[in-house]
Design a protein around this nucleic acid. Sequence first.
DNA 1: TTGTAAGCGTTATCAA
DNA 2: TTGATAACGCTTACAA
Lengths: 329, 329
Amino acid sequence: MTTITEIAAALGVTPSTVSRALSGSPRVKEATRKAVEQKAAEFGYERNVVASNLRRGRSDIVGIVVPRIHREFFSNVIGGAEAVLNEAGYNVLICQTHERYEDEVKALQTLRNNRVAGVLMSHAIGSSDGSHITSILGQNIPLVQFDRVFSKLPGTKIVSNNFEGAYQATRHLLQQGFRRIGTLAGYMNSEAYAQRLEGYRKALKDSGLEPSAQIEFLDTIVRETGYDACKKALAAGCDALYSAGDFSALGAIDALKEQSISHFGIVGTANESFTALMSPAMSSLALNPYEMGCQAAQAFIDGAQDGEKVVPMELKIRESSNFNITWQK
Amino acid sequence: MTTITEIAAALGVTPSTVSRALSGSPRVKEATRKAVEQKAAEFGYERNVVASNLRRGRSDIVGIVVPRIHREFFSNVIGGAEAVLNEAGYNVLICQTHERYEDEVKALQTLRNNRVAGVLMSHAIGSSDGSHITSILGQNIPLVQFDRVFSKLPGTKIVSNNFEGAYQATRHLLQQGFRRIGTLAGYMNSEAYAQRLEGYRKALKDSGLEPSAQIEFLDTIVRETGYDACKKALAAGCDALYSAGDFSALGAIDALKEQSISHFGIVGTANESFTALMSPAMSSLALNPYEMGCQAAQAFIDGAQDGEKVVPMELKIRESSNFNITWQK
DNA sequence: TTGTAAGCGTTATCAA
DNA sequence: TTGATAACGCTTACAA
């Protein structure tokens, strides 16, 4: 592979000049620049980014850490972030944590070892406080968190208006005529889930209903636990569920169909594409992952100042929250 | 950040010794190694991978190039590859091409500039022959292709048994009683799609039916074109469609539901998770993305020898291929 | 078993 | 405007 030294030799100048010419420095005569560019093209030169990064003490790689890449939400966040970052000349290195604390530590160490320019991340469920994050990344690697954030940590946080969204979703169920509304809540070490639970409770209170721990099913984010929790909700006399996730809502629907229940409303969260394709189609509180990814990337580019940016959620009303629904296989 | 020079100074040895001690060379006294490791831990030392890579002339990053990361198929391939690669000490850099030739060229250049250890890729639809791939990567960067492959290129190819799979899918429709079976075919510059078309044709011939260009709808892989093609298929008297993709099959179902058609069979390809969640649930020819990712990664680790590995497909039979089906909104 | 010295390819600083 | 020189942090012949 061609190096700037070879180009310099071919032109009878020094590597410094070639380097300056190729990196757009103004301290090069126009004619020299032309000559250098021509030779570079002729030799098929490509800058050795590794050497350049070592010398400059920084890299053009931004790490993205997510629990699971195949979740639509996260792959869309990545898509948005990638678009903005590529545009700005950065590359993206993706790590999955599989919701495990140990994998998250490993991923962050990998990124630090590669001296990445910055990290965009959404923490694992298994990661119960963010102290490891700052201690691994140190002062030099800017951090932007999105969706699942630890608000104590420095850097920008991109979040959804979880409280407001859950409030609206629950109120929608109330307006439809449902009266005993339970919730499939997530893990309370995640602020996003905690806020959704609060929004749900507030909506009940504002309608004169008292929240009850008996119908708040915590740690319920997958299909299986959604199924189990829905059976308990039925036993507890619920006639609707606001679920803080789509997959748990899907599990709940499994239970409803199994028993051919009527007049039982469901609203999920995340608007995974299957929600619109199922039938009856599932109402869901849509996050805005692509936009969140763009904003996270932009926040990094802008310097990852401390602070929070809120991306709105939008309630998608479909059949599962219709009062007259009948669930059938 | 601590360097080996600092550790060396603190211990009164040279950086070479520290380097050897930390990289597990046998040419270090056991006591020295202990001392070095202790100091390294004390200083919180982490090897500067960038410098190490520059010196050794290689990196521990493997590039993965896919058309779109949010397609379940690809995110699962990435998941499988990542698992195997991380285990072997590699990191993964992911690039999307958005099905565009230009983006594919850019991605490959980026990977080359970063001197990645290897590339795993599935080419874009817009990329009609693979010459740019080898010309950008050159001799030094091993290539493993998966799913959409150019068989002329060197390196390992991981493919599905597309011919056999499409044959089975079509035969299944015939066995159900459908008689005039069309196909939503993909782009013929992709060998995977071309093979599926051949498998489909062979199944017809083996049942004494003559393939007809009139009911082979080429370049049809998204929902919208699937919808349009299905209308034409209905006009052409078809009573079933084998679709080489799930999204086009979904579009076809849109058309069927719109007209409340009965006795019209559909089999898709890829087994995207929505296929099982819709109702009626869609029969689909399942690829095995996670396994393909694992095999691609393993092939790279094993040296990306020329050759082809075939990962079996599996037909998932659901309601959409039942002869008595009635499509309703 | 350890040290010496050179170099991976680039860029920053200083001097000319 | 260009050149000389050093350095980024690490690895590896070779020598001791």
